[in-house]
Design a protein around this nucleic acid. Structure first.
Lengths: 215, 215
DNA sequence: TGTACATCAGTGAACGCGCGTTCACTGATGTAC
DNA sequence: TGTACATCAGTGAACGCGCGTTCACTGATGTAC
């Protein structure tokens, strides 16, 4: 990484923490450069204006999140071939990873930005929508795979259930912060896991794969 | 209501909409008075400082919310004596009420404030925590009543499940905004209803009350 | 290997504007006697 | 019923400070020939 990129990342780190605890509009360039140890013009070398900072934050956050999801559910896929188990194990692993963060999840940038969308231009707002749509799609795929293999006890729309997962995650990050209890996020990931489990409890395997049958 | 109170409510209305779409820090007193048609000193007659405005917003929001919860689940209690049905019907009614809002839920003040807590003093932060604790307590009571009557298929902690409800609500308000789909909140209220239903599917009634037995 | 030039990663000063808060003051309404 | 006083619901002007953005400039590093 070139020196400029290091500075850029440093600015983004400082900005992200500030935005998650005070909001974007009230996070001043002045405070960022004070903490980063550069001048204001140094900041404007990296970001054309403040909106560009928002874009930078969002892109980086979305990438980090995608990597995490892929790691966790990728690991689950290594452990089993059964699509339902993959989802259940993935949620377990996710809960473990989130439980391992000492101060809890630092906050969802997409959530705050959604509550401040009047501050951003069309571009950034579209990116927020797109990011969330991506998350929903990720879980929808997992759920559809499970639905293709098993028939659930009650009718389920894969997309609705995928949204439930996203809602629970974003909601429990807020609850955890509001209550000062970082444990709420892992706890709630296990609750949504229970929901999925109950949905498929005693379900009939539609397509029998040898591995799934053995398990 | 005295004239002063009308003005105060008007300020709160304008401020709430602004806070939910831009954030508290960036909502200026200047814009509020411009829309309300008073002068700056008029504002400071009603609120000692900006933090007092936050307090006013929060108190009012919490009261409105409590009233809504009591209406919805009070109505459910009128319709049935069975504590499980009360919870299930209440969630249904809640979904209906939320589905009836043409532009969807305007946003949860507690959620934004949680993501901006560095802006507020100890007082306001404590009020946020207390408000959320109150919501959790409300649902915990309902769930405990159901647990006292029926044994669920899987072990459930009433408080965890109560938190799930709160997480889903706050999370789906965000998802609805981010996706531009107001329908997500009612949809997700029905998902959490499904979770409760599955938990108690085929459950044994522990204490038989005549009405519940008839139903 | 030396030299010219380009790009990178910034510096420093200035700008105009809007912000939250304070202060001394005021007309209309309500209340006590 | 009249009068004095208090309270309510504001007005108007001023304050100092921090904000985002622009501009002309610069030293260090990289690249072409």
């Amino acid at each position: 990484m070139r020196k400029g990129n290091e500075t850029r990342e440093k600015i983004l780190d400082i900005a992200e923490a500030a935005v998650l605890s005070k909001g974007f509009g009230v996070t001043s360039i002045e405070e960022l450069i004070a903490e980063a140890g550069i001048t204001k013009s140094g900041f404007f070398y990296h970001f054309r204006d403040k909106n560009e900072l928002a874009k930078g934050l969002l892109v980086r956050y979305a990438e980090q999140n995608d990597r995490l999801l892929e790691q966790v559910f990728g690991r689950a896929a290594e452990l089993t071939d059964d699509p339902l188990q993959r989802l259940l194990i993935g949620l377990n692993l996710f809960a473990e990873v989130m439980g391992g963060l000492p101060d809890g999840h630092p906050g969802c940038l997409v959530a705050t930005m959604t509550y401040q969308d009047r501050l951003f231009d069309r571009d950034v707002r579209a990116m927020v929508t797109e990011t969330v749509t991506g998350w929903n799609g990720f879980f929808t795929d997992l759920i559809e795979a499970a639905l293709a293999a098993y028939s659930p006890r009650e009718a389920v729309d894969a997309e609705s259930l995928a949204r439930t997962i996203c809602c629970v995650i974003d909601g429990s990050i807020i609850m955890a912060k509001a209550l000062g209890r970082p444990g709420v996020l892992p706890e709630q990931l296990l609750m949504i896991r229970q929901h999925v489990k109950l949905l498929f409890a005693g379900a009939v395997l539609r397509v029998v794969s040898p591995e799934a049958a053995a398990a």
